[in-house]
Design a binder for these strands. Structure first.
Ligand SMILES: [Mn+2]
Ligand SMILES: [Mn+2]
Ligand SMILES: [Zn+2]
Ligand SMILES: [Zn+2]
Lengths: 140, 140
DNA sequence: ACAATTGCTGCAACATTGTTGCGTTTATTT
DNA sequence: AAATAAACGCAACAATGTTGCAGCAATTGT
């Protein structure tokens, strides 16, 4: 099960034309295994003892994966980016849900975000960032 | 013009049943004068030489004003809260626009945010946070 | 196979934004 | 005026992320 993710991660990275280092593969497989979007800290904690990475290296690897479009990152009100693998459903823009009690963040892939609205004159649309807040199933 | 805002700010604060200190009044009048949502830093810069407040005092005053529902704060991807006075239009939830070049943040009061969507089973809705990103009129 | 080049890593130092504890000052109440 | 409560300023701390640089590892060219 883990090996499968590991292989998937390795292939994705090789396909994207970069060096498939042990760190990158491990990070991506951690994000692929996760349902939620998780923080830098949480990724660090999921790294095995045998493959501890420097904080900075982890930050740079994550930025690299974002640039290659293999993961995406989510803004939150607690000043910490959260990262999640780009599965098929995530190729398009989607909203996120954040629990105000336990801080978990999940992706809401079925939330349609068509723009029926308009911006002020002269303003140019680029992207939308939508976070729904509330209590998750465990916390409510 | 400034005096009018100052008076408005003073009344609002007195009405909310707190101490109308010089700092709070000044901060609120600064926010009332501003079209955009601005950061702690920007508020600090708009304070007159004759009324410099400690960083911490400013943070606490802002938090107090938020609690009294006189201002609201906006999450952004640059890890800095932005604050704006609660005018009439702002009593209800609304979206914000952030320029990806100059980082200015404005309120989009006419963007309807009714929820046609649903959350996963067991999840409880509390609030929604919507930021549209793009280029403002000056930057595009 | 070897050397040159490129890119990745780790470390230290720094930056930004915000928070906490606590003693002092200021305003309000009695 | 004295007692109480609220607000303030300072110092220290915390969390998250960034930058510069030297060393190391992988890839490429010969
Ligand atoms: Mn997502
Ligand atoms: Mn607003
Ligand atoms: Zn929760
Ligand atoms: Zn702009």
């Amino acid at each position: 099960m883990f090996n499968k993710l590991h292989r998937t991660a390795e292939e994705l990275i090789q396909h994207s034309g970069g060096r498939a280092t042990a760190g990158r593969i491990r990070i991506l497989s951690i994000l692929l295994a996760e349902q939620q979007a998780i923080t830098h800290r949480e990724i660090e904690q999921r790294l095995p003892q045998t493959l501890q990475l420097d904080r900075v290296t982890l930050y740079r690897a994550l930025e690299w994966l974002v640039g290659k479009n293999l993961i995406h990152k989510v803004t939150s009100d607690d000043r910490a980016w959260r990262y999640h693998a780009n599965r098929e459903l995530h190729s398009h823009q989607h909203a996120h849900f954040k629990c105000t009690r336990c801080a978990q963040v999940i992706c809401l892939s079925d939330l349609s975000m068509e723009r029926s609205w308009h911006l002020p004159i002269g303003y140019q649309f680029q992207e939308i960032e939508l976070t729904v807040k509330g209590l998750c199933a465990d916390c409510s």
